[in-house]
């Protein structure tokens, strides 16, 4: 069992990395791109007998407390078999 966590900068927060990647894409000819947001991906491996609901609750807390900073970031958590 795995947890997949995607962390992205909040829309209101300046994202110079996303902006720079967007500019580079425009230089390469990808002119239809209207915005780029660069975040991070975390994959966590869990023991196969883990209860998915409990894993979700525990990792949701970990995402809020540690893996993301809620002042500047949003996260999406997914538990997959």
């Amino acid at each position: 069992m795995k947890a997949k966590i995607i962390i992205t900068p909040k829309k209101a927060v300046l994202d110079p990395q996303g902006k720079t990647v967007q500019n580079a894409l425009a230089h390469l000819g990808y002119t239809d791109v209207t915005a780029v947001h660069v975040g991070k991906y975390i994959e966590i491996e869990l023991a196969s007998n883990t209860d998915p609901q409990r894993a979700r609750e525990a990792l949701d807390e970990a995402c809020y407390k540690f893996l993301s900073n809620p002042i500047i970031e949003d996260y999406h958590l997914e538990i997959v078999p």
Partner: peptide
Amino acid sequence: ALIRNRSL
């Protein structure tokens, strides 16, 4: 919070 410099 402190984030990446505007200029990178």
